[in-house]
Design a protein around this nucleic acid. Structure first.
Length: 431
DNA sequence: ATTGGGGCTAAGA
DNA sequence: TCTTAGCCCCAAT
């Protein structure tokens, strides 16, 4: 590994070393996932999300690694029932996971038969998780979208629809559901693939005879050591091949031409290829940008938006951008900040808000004279507000006016006026 | 405290 | 004038 210049040598080596680091953290990551150590998981995810912005060797294995990590990330995300996923496209984490599975399928990175049973399981989990969170509308949406009525699924589909209809959260199908089983199955699904990812650093670390070993070994679980020793077999080959590849590796850092073209096409509005290099980070971003393309319209001309300051989620947010779908520009009016902030619940649907906002603008304009001259009295109901009520009733049920009031950014409305509005809406057959 | 229903009235036809 | 959406009031829970 002689190199003429120290600097260029270092930078030339970076992809190789990064590759080792990625593989190492991949195993840590999987291990944290498997053993439900959420703290570790999140931290490692942060680290990797930064790492993959650097250059790595371009090996097909990395696509597998990153896809698996993406998938696990989505599933882990869904594991926290209090997690208010700020992903502002309306996808739940588990739904995103389904999408990733689809992508994996398309990309043929894995044996095709790997997914089928688990995909069904994941779809079911996505619906059930929503129901558990009382997000019935969303649950129905996911159900309709993902669970088609085939022979095998007809019964399940009917059952779930029924549960949603009755808001029957007590149903065994719902009550017995836990995400840990999902996690287990997903882990099992990829176990072989995971084992096939080498772990050079772990192997070396294990051989390290110094007294540092005790310290470095400490975070290692038995399984990981097993993995390490498993990788041991190939580690000699690994090193030698790496040595041979090194001179060529600089040019190989570029993703393959096809990939790059594909990339440019699909991520035009994302960070374009920078200095001719397409990092794996961008590769991960690729699917994200194609997922939500319709939300361009961003009108934040109005007031402040709620930056939900939930510390424990904020930690995830940067990573979410890398691993999950980037946060889109949902705007949420906060009439009374304290209200929105006070309650840590933000996971309501926000389906048609931007449209309604437009309507609201016209409405507000035309009525502004009368409403202001009335000095607050008798404010006409905007289309937007009406829609919130509609959604609110659908979600929380008729009569939960306080709940609805606090769930949407109403201004100068009370639970009673909302109730009255609902009455009018019914009278006018707006519902 | 919150809700549903009766009733009043400002706006608009 | 008449109608009605929006609001207030109060009894019931």
């Amino acid at each position: 590994m002689e190199v003429s210049s120290y600097d260029s040598g270092i930078s030339a080596l970076e992809p190789v070393v990064n590759q080792w680091v990625l593989e190492y953290f991949f195993h840590l990551y999987v291990d944290a996932f498997k053993n439900c150590r959420n703290e570790d998981f999140v931290q490692i995810r942060d680290i990797v999300s930064i790492l993959i912005q650097r250059r790595l060797r371009c090996v097909e294995q990395n696509s597998q690694v990153l896809r698996i990590m993406q998938l696990l990330s989505c599933i882990e995300e869904g594991a926290d029932p209090d997690c208010t996923f700020d992903e502002d496209n309306n996808e739940t984490p588990l739904e995103s996971a389904i999408g990733i599975l689809d992508l994996m399928n398309q990309e043929k990175l894995f044996p095709a038969d790997l997914f089928q049973t688990n995909k069904q399981m994941l779809k079911e989990a996505a619906v059930v998780a929503c129901i558990q969170k009382q997000q019935f509308t969303k649950a129905r949406g996911i159900l309709k979208k993902h669970i088609t009525s085939s022979r095998n699924t007809r019964q399940l589909r009917a059952d779930l629809l029924n549960i949603i209809q009755e808001r029957n959260v007590k149903h065994p199908l719902i009550a017995n559901f836990t995400l840990s089983t999902v996690k287990e199955k997903v882990y099992d699904m990829f176990e072989n693939q995971i084992d096939n990812i080498p772990s050079y650093l772990l192997t070396v670390a294990q051989k390290e005879p110094t007294d540092l070993q005790g310290a470095s070994k400490e975070p290692l679980t038995p399984e990981k050591q097993a993995e390490g020793s498993m990788g041991n077999v190939s580690s000699q080959d690994e090193i030698s091949t790496l040595e041979h590849e090194l001179p060529a590796s600089q040019s190989k850092d570029l993703t393959s031409p096809e990939k790059q073209a594909e990339e440019e096409a699909s991520t035009a509005r994302e960070t374009g290829p920078q200095r001719g290099l397409v990092t794996l980070h961008q590769l991960v971003m690729e699917q994200d940008s194609q997922q939500e393309s319709e939300n361009e319209e961003e009108d934040n001309q109005e007031e402040q938006r709620a930056e939900k300051p939930q510390q424990q989620k904020r930690r995830n947010s940067s990573v979410r951008k890398l691993f999950n779908t980037p946060v889109t520009s949902k705007r949420r009016k906060t009439s009374t900040d304290s209200r929105v902030l006070g309650q840590a619940r933000v996971n309501e649907e926000q389906d048609t808000w931007s449209d309604e906002d437009n309507l609201f603008k016209e409405n507000g304009l035309s009525k502004s004279v009368s409403s202001t001259s009335l000095s607050g009295r008798r404010k006409k109901w905007s289309e937007e507000e009406t829609e919130w009520i509609r959604l609110g009733v659908e979600k929380y049920g008729e009569g939960k006016w306080s709940k609805i009031l606090s769930s949407y950014p109403f201004e100068q409305r009370t639970a009673t006026t909302i109730k009255d509005r609902w009455r009018t809406m019914k009278k006018l057959s707006l519902v």
